[in-house]
Write a protein that binds this DNA or RNA. Structure first.
Lengths: 252, 252
DNA sequence: ATGGTGAAGGTGGTCCGACCACCAGCGTTG
DNA sequence: CAACGCTGGTGGTCGGACCACCTTCACCAT
């Protein structure tokens, strides 16, 4: 049985809810930021129980399409397109992604993004980039604050590249990457150095020097990688007691 | 409020379940293909209601980490790493991704993948690629069947590239892309032509000719794009009655 | 008036317990 | 020996009660 694409599992009703909402979005009845009806009403309207409706909403929320706020309501996601950070993190643990693979993926995406930004970026983007670079110089003594602008810088490049899909993919990877980075406060030494490179990237993009933008971005990311590569090696290998044939009665 | 990365919402208990399972996976207690305890038992073990547990499982299932089979049990995903196809399709509808952006993203990923495959691929991968190419030649009169091997060919390249993360991203995009493609049966004329190019890609990879592999893949994808670009243009623009200030009482 | 305070209503979150639908396995039956 | 059908276990659905959170607004003290 050559299951062509994907065995889109999931129960009937859950699927029904997902598709219903998808349809509402596709035909424009729901737009980013909009609020969906209260669960009780919506469930009644769809002729299903609230539990089933919630299952569907859960799926949409897990995929980052809906945004649920306790005591307020459920809304269609609006911010920068994103695909939930957890997914990749989970898959990472599941399939044993290596850090170098993460960096490689990021390198490929971001270098292209930089090139595209140099090619298609507009004045407003350049201004935003300059702003963030300035902020980085001003905060390289405060890793916490610096990181904010670092992220915004890369995010702005992705926006300037004019391809939201690539931007989403980049966000997904960097989110998974930062999960580890957030723990280790960077030395301000390398931060100042990083700010320098960010500035060069910015200049290359503004000058619409495509290959230079790509090259600089690659250089930057390689440095970032080697700077973070230290604090690894201490990952305890996943050990699993070879279940001795019988029941292992795991400690779930 | 500079929300750094993502506002990881979701309720307490749902989160608790997700993290619990994540922990089980990370420390090796759960591996791909394993089965998790029955919902009733698991819920009791975690001291939560079955409903809450199901909410958590729902999230994990939506992210493609768990695979629920009615009447059988819930399992940890094992197949080729994948990130659920719906998510991107949903985001697509939500943020109005253009087809050319999809193709651009795919082009970037797959061309790199082809290059990496030429660089790192092993004999076993080459053999599998040859197999699929042969199958394509044998089935170019049957679009349905052809598609299977087409997919497998690209998937094998991704595997040969040795970076599962990039493979996941590719799968995500192609899945969203095929959703539209499945509807339109391809002309066998172009399929035979496509088979030719696949063969050339294969030869380039086997010869470890990195730049040639990349170039051929780019060529192939560009042709595929223009071949599919026809059946567009008929997308009814999302119209939304500008709510006249009052309540619109939409037809959810 | 102004500003704080608390009650009310609406919304999502959790729980319970029952029942339905599906699947695999095994014994019975022809 | 093969086909049938029962049975146990598992996920799917239901409804309805109650909890937790947020917003609003009337009320009261300043």
């Amino acid at each position: 049985m050559p299951n062509s694409i994907r065995n889109t599992n999931d129960a009937h009703l859950t699927m029904q809810v997902v598709n219903h909402v998808r349809a509402l979005i596709e035909n424009g009845a729901l737009r980013p930021g909009d609020r969906i009806p209260p669960e009780r009403d919506f469930a009644r309207k769809l002729k299903i129980s609230r539990a089933s409706l919630r299952a569907g909403i859960g799926h949409l929320a897990a995929m980052g399409v809906l945004n649920v706020r306790h005591g307020v309501g459920t809304f269609v996601a609006d911010g920068p397109p994103a695909l939930g950070s957890d997914p990749l993190a989970l898959l990472s643990a599941l399939h044993g992604f290596k850090p170098w693979q993460m960096f490689e993926a990021r390198l490929i995406l971001e270098s292209h993004l930089a090139a595209l930004a140099a090619e298609r970026g507009r004045e407003e983007h350049f201004a935003a980039l300059a702003e963030e670079v300035a902020e980085m110089y001003a905060t390289f003594h405060d890793p916490q604050e610096y990181l904010i602008h670092d992220i915004r810088f890369h995010r702005t490049i992705a926006e300037a590249a004019g391809n939201p899909i690539l931007a989403v993919l980049m966000e997904t990877i960097t989110a998974a990457l930062y999960d580890e980075r957030r723990k280790t406060a960077e030395r301000s030494k390398s931060l100042k150095q990083a700010a320098e490179i960010h500035r060069e990237i910015y200049r290359a993009i503004r000058a619409r020097n495509i290959s230079e933008a790509r090259t600089m971005m690659e250089k930057h990311l390689r440095m970032a990688q080697s700077a973070q590569v230290d604090e690894v090696a201490s990952k305890p290998k996943a050990t699993r007691k070879k279940s001795s044939g019988k029941k292992a009665k795991a400690a779930y």
